Amino acid sequence: MTAPTLTETLPARETARSWWGDAWLVMTRELTPTLRDPFSVVFGLVQPLVFLGLFGPLLAGSVGATVPGGDVWAWFVPGILVMTTLFGTSTTGANLLFEMQTGAHERLLVTPLARSAQLVGRAGKEMAPVVAQSLLVVLVMLPFGFAPHPLGVLAGLVLLAVFGVGVGSLSYALAIAVRQQDWMFWAVQQTLLFPLLILSGMLLPLETGPRWMQVAADANPLRYVVDAERALFAGDLASATVAWGAVAAALTAALGLVVGVRTLSRSTR
């Protein structure tokens, strides 16, 4: 009688590995520090609340009458949610740079986990902080007269999560690309971040800007996401604006995942 092998004695669910299982494993690994320290999610609210508390009243006093719809909070809060998503997910590559310095990333690369699943798992982790922070901002603003459409809020959170996956994936790809000169990560991130932010119209209406700025804004996918969030929170769920925003978010996610997976697959350390 021959002794049973390890494969024969383990249940099939323990020996059979799947790509989705790999992605789920990486996502839960990345989420664990956040769940153990939820204060990091709450701390991420400082910046959007400062913008809402200080910039919002200035906006109401200066261009409140020219804001589409006339409701400053209905126009401004969705833009701040997109800004929070952009800031939070575009900096996630810094975490990967830290793992590279400590050797944790290299150890993960030599595991049997599929590299594409590693990237997708990391990107999927970005959904949780984005949704949690956005919900908290909405709840904080309700007593101040912000009255979003409930279904629009849910759809808007999904749109933000999809967009965040794409931006987070691009951030990871950037971190891998500049791992030999990690200071370049912040140089590129900051150089791209603020033009995208200003040309999205999330802080000030672009309708009052010069024509060249409006043309440049039309080429900015972030603008369509911002416009879609405003339409969704206003309850205009089936508008063309929402459709264009969904397309922009989906294309950003697809581009980020493709670039991120290819970059990680070619990474040797």
Rank of each mutant, 00 (worst) to 15 (best):
R17E: 06
A155Y: 14
A243G: 11
V153D: 13
A175P: 02
V137D: 08
V50Q: 02
L25R: 00
T91E: 05
N220H: 06
S62D: 08
M1L: 14
A12R: 09
S116R: 07
S18K: 13
G164V: 03
L174M: 14
G256R: 04
A12M: 03
P48Y: 06
L119F: 08
V167W: 04
P57K: 08
G103D: 01
H149S: 15
V63D: 09
L58Q: 07
W20L: 15
D236P: 12
L222E: 09
M141H: 04
L255D: 02
L174P: 14
M202H: 08
G69H: 14
T241L: 11
P112Y: 00
A175N: 10
P4G: 10
G93M: 12
M141V: 05
D182K: 10
G166W: 13
D37S: 06
D37V: 07
V225W: 08
L193N: 07
R269A: 15
M213K: 03
S239E: 01
L139V: 15
R17Y: 05
Q181R: 12
Q133F: 04
L206Q: 07
G156N: 07
P210N: 07
E229P: 09
P221F: 09
T28S: 06
D37H: 03
F163W: 13
F146T: 06
R17W: 11
D227R: 09
A219W: 01
G145N: 13
R262S: 02
L251Y: 05
A216Q: 01
F55Y: 15
A240W: 14
P210Q: 07
A104I: 12
S171M: 08
G209L: 12
A246Y: 05
L170T: 04
L96P: 01
L119V: 12
G103P: 06
F51D: 00
A254L: 15
L139Q: 12
V82S: 12
W19L: 09
V215A: 03
L255P: 07
R269C: 02
L197N: 06
G61D: 14
P68L: 08
A117H: 11
T268D: 14
L257Y: 04
L197A: 13
T9K: 02
W73T: 15
A161K: 11
V67G: 13
V110S: 13
G152M: 11
L196H: 04
I176G: 13
W19M: 09
V140F: 14
T91N: 12
P11K: 00
L35E: 01
L119N: 00
T84M: 14
Y172C: 06
L203W: 01
M202S: 15
V158Q: 04
P150I: 10
A246I: 05
M127P: 01
L160N: 05
V63G: 07
S239F: 04
L193C: 06
E8T: 05
L232D: 15
A246W: 11
F194K: 05
